[in-house]
Each structure stands twice: as C-alpha cells, then as structure tokens.
Simulated scan of single mutants.
Amino acid sequence: MSLSSHLQELKKKHQNLSTAVEHLQRSPSADGLHVAQLKKQKLLLKEEISRISSNMH
C-alpha cells in the first residue's frame, strides 16, 4: 500500500469516526465511555494523519 493510499484510508476512518461520534452524541442514551473511546481513536488517527502528511512534504 502506498503512503498516499494509506493516508486516504486513515482520513476515511477519521471521517467515519466523526460521523459515529456525532450520531452517538445526539442520542439521549449515549454511552459516555464509548463516545470518549471513539474520540480517542479519532485523535490518534488525526495525529497519524498529521505525521504522515508532514513526512510526505
């Protein structure tokens, strides 16, 4: 897998997590722990995306 395609896949996963977090936060019965875990995964993906992007330039 090329670095560029890996980066695109990470961005796609990040967007999917964003959507999931938004939906969960709108739900009155949302599990706060689950939302926090998703946000942590999202942050880790964002950091990796930033790291890869800076290495490509």
Score class of each variant (00 low, 15 high):
38 L>H: 04
22 E>C: 06
53 S>G: 15
52 I>S: 08
46 K>V: 05
20 A>S: 12
31 D>S: 03
15 Q>P: 00
19 T>R: 08
42 K>E: 09
48 E>H: 14
21 V>W: 02
14 H>F: 07
6 H>F: 06
39 K>N: 09
22 E>H: 08
54 S>H: 13
31 D>A: 07
52 I>L: 13
49 I>R: 00
29 S>F: 05
29 S>T: 10
31 D>T: 10
38 L>V: 03
10 L>K: 04
35 V>N: 03
25 Q>A: 09
11 K>R: 13
47 E>H: 13
47 E>A: 15
17 L>K: 02
46 K>H: 13
5 S>D: 04
24 L>V: 08
9 E>T: 10
42 K>F: 00
21 V>Y: 05
47 E>Y: 10
41 Q>Y: 07
32 G>H: 08
14 H>Q: 11
46 K>R: 14
35 V>T: 12
2 S>G: 12
36 A>V: 00
25 Q>D: 12
23 H>M: 15
8 Q>T: 04
17 L>W: 02
55 N>V: 10
24 L>I: 01
13 K>G: 02
32 G>N: 07
24 L>W: 02
6 H>W: 01
2 S>A: 09
51 R>V: 08
3 L>T: 08
51 R>D: 13
3 L>Y: 02
51 R>N: 12
38 L>M: 15
45 L>Q: 06
11 K>N: 06
15 Q>F: 04
32 G>P: 09
36 A>G: 14
15 Q>I: 07
20 A>T: 10
19 T>S: 11
26 R>G: 14
41 Q>C: 12
37 Q>A: 07
24 L>E: 04
34 H>R: 05
18 S>H: 04
13 K>I: 10
50 S>R: 09
22 E>D: 14
56 M>P: 09
4 S>G: 05
20 A>P: 04
7 L>F: 05
39 K>C: 08
56 M>V: 10
54 S>A: 15
8 Q>V: 03
24 L>A: 11
20 A>W: 00
40 K>G: 12
49 I>K: 05
54 S>D: 13
53 S>C: 11
9 E>M: 06
41 Q>F: 01
3 L>M: 09
37 Q>C: 05
9 E>P: 00
57 H>S: 15
57 H>R: 14
31 D>K: 00
46 K>F: 00
5 S>L: 07
23 H>F: 11
57 H>D: 15
34 H>L: 09
25 Q>R: 14
22 E>S: 13
9 E>H: 06
8 Q>G: 05
8 Q>H: 05
4 S>A: 10
35 V>G: 03
